[in-house]
């Protein structure tokens, strides 16, 4: 294939858009990790449930796409909070990721993932469903060199930026956000400041799952929605989180974008049928040369 600058640009633009979606899911994983010291292995299923909630709201209930997006985020946040409250809290209360209970937590996450997949088969069926969304009011973007960016990609970019900005504002400029950061750093001190720690943990979980749901609804119109979609997303979001530096929120976004670009370029110039490998290739490269990730935060030291 002759080198064509325009198509390279196009691959990068599409890579970035899909990458921010990975980034949003990775953001949730990082949020939960920094808040609870646990790696949440059922996060891909939250993304999948989010996509299905959006689908049901848009097709069966018939609400407009943006409403379906918000609705799916809220429903998934509630689902995530319920799962945390009922299943995870017992384990996290016994200690975080560095204890024996932390190991139990990982296994519990896997179990939850399997349980949620099967619940989804029961409720939504095994067929891949196309997510038809009417996005005519979103402008198509045309870049120089005849690069056309479809509406769903434009919308994805806009919503992702809005979500990230919203999360940033919440964490940096609100009192509750300050409390969330306090809990993420040290739960005991947060308690002594009068922060209702269990409530904040619920909130962290809800936020993270809401973000995953947004990613699901955004991906919906690009790919179809199916029960098994969570697994690969989880893996790629993990890759994104590790590439950016586990636990770092800006790192999650940058990592996601890098995974997106890398994947698209690999698919374009090496082999399209091995598209899903490139994310992990990048992951391995980063782990070899900068194991703490690009925005690596130092390991938290427990007193």
């Amino acid at each position: 294939m002759a080198f064509d600058f325009n198509s390279l640009l196009a691959f990068i633009i599409f890579g970035v858009t899909i990458g921010v979606v990975y980034g949003i899911v990775a953001l949730g994983i990082s949020l939960i990790y920094s808040g609870l010291d646990i790696v949440h292995f059922a996060h891909g299923e939250m993304y999948m449930f989010g996509a299905f909630f959006g689908l049901v709201l848009a097709h069966n209930v018939g609400v407009p796409y943006p409403v379906a997006l918000v609705g799916a985020m809220i429903l998934t946040a509630l689902l995530g909070m319920a799962v945390e409250r009922v299943f995870y809290r017992r384990l996290t209360r016994a200690g975080g990721g560095y204890t024996v209970a932390g190991m139990g937590m990982i296994i519990c996450g896997f179990g939850m993932s399997v349980a949620l997949v099967n619940a989804a088969y029961f409720f939504f069926g095994a067929e891949a469903e196309p997510f038809r969304a009417n996005l005519d009011y979103i402008p198509r973007l045309t870049f120089p060199g005849d690069i056309n960016v479809p509406e769903s990609y434009v919308l994805t970019a806009i919503i992702s930026v809005l979500l990230m900005a919203g999360l940033h504002y919440f964490l940096r400029h609100t009192k509750t956000g300050l409390a969330v950061r306090a809990v993420a750093h040290n739960k005991d001190i947060a308690y002594l400041m009068g922060v209702n720690v269990p409530l904040m943990i619920s909130l962290i979980f809800g936020l993270a799952c809401g973000l995953a749901a947004a990613a699901g609804v955004l991906i919906g119109p690009m790919q179809s929605v199916q029960v098994e979609m969570g697994y690969l997303m989880l893996m790629k979001a993990f890759a994104a989180a590790v590439v950016g530096g586990f636990g770092s929120l800006p790192g999650a976004i940058v990592g996601g974008i890098m995974v997106g670009i890398f994947e698209n370029l690999g698919a374009a110039y090496i082999s399209a049928s091995h598209k899903d490998i490139y994310a992990f290739l990048l992951l391995i490269l980063v782990l070899m040369f900068k194991p703490s990730g690009l925005f690596g935060v130092e390991a938290k030291v427990k007193a």
Partner: peptide
């Protein structure tokens, strides 16, 4: 109110954020 040991300030927060957090309730 318990004042924690000094090493337990929040190092990644600014001085003022730490103080505001003290008034959280």
């Amino acid at each position: 109110v318990q004042v924690t040991q000094a090493k337990e300030a929040y190092p990644a927060m600014t001085v003022e954020e730490n103080l505001v957090l003290g008034a959280y309730t």
